[in-house]
């Protein structure tokens, strides 16, 4: 069976991501394994949230900006807490990374920087599931990654 010492896990709490997490724990080597937890804020979503609120004065806009940053930080912190706790249970080292950008590009860059052996991601979300519309371009991922990647498909 496939095994890896350092795994990059793209995880943001969705059903697919939870499957990816479970799969990562199955694959990872028991001795000195490390999970690199990547959280991505898709750039187009982030830009879209800074819409054309031209009627407001800049102080309203600043308040909003700090608020949105705070919300995203809180979101990230919650996800980090979950995965970090699981890693502890499994006796694994843990590194969180938060990035802004195109999802596939972020995965590629993080995989190179952290020198991971394997990347594990969840499957595309089913249409019924709600959430932000932003997709991981598997084509880009396939061409750019220096290491194999695994998609945690399944029911």
């Amino acid at each position: 069976m496939l095994t890896a010492k350092t795994i990059l896990l793209a995880y943001h709490g969705t059903e697919g991501a939870k499957r990816a997490e479970a799969l990562a724990y199955e694959i990872i080597s028991r001795e000195g394994g490390r999970i690199v937890h990547l959280l991505i804020v898709p750039e187009d979503v982030w830009v879209g949230m800074q819409g054309d609120d031209w009627l407001n004065n800049a102080s309203t806009r600043d308040t909003y900006g700090s608020y949105v940053e705070g919300v995203l930080e809180k979101d990230a912190a919650e996800q980090v807490a979950v995965v970090e706790a699981h890693c502890k249970q499994h006796g694994l080292a843990y590194t969180p990374i938060l990035r802004l950008g195109d999802p596939a590009d972020c995965v590629i860059a993080a995989a190179r920087e952290e020198k991971v052996d394997l990347v594990v991601i969840g499957p595309p979300r089913s249409k019924k599931e709600s959430g932000l519309r932003s997709r991981m371009e598997l084509d880009t991922l396939g061409r750019g990654l220096p290491v194999p990647y695994v998609v945690a498909c399944g029911e």
Binding site: L39, Q50, G65, A76, L100, E113
Partner: peptide
């Protein structure tokens, strides 16, 4: 570790590991 470090990274702003920053000019 995590959260504090993460926050430190995020508040650095514009650094490679930082999160999104609202652009205030």
């Amino acid at each position: 570790m995590a959260i504090n470090d993460l926050n430190a990274e995020m508040s650095a702003g514009g650094e490679p590991k930082g999160g999104p920053k609202f652009d205030r000019g």
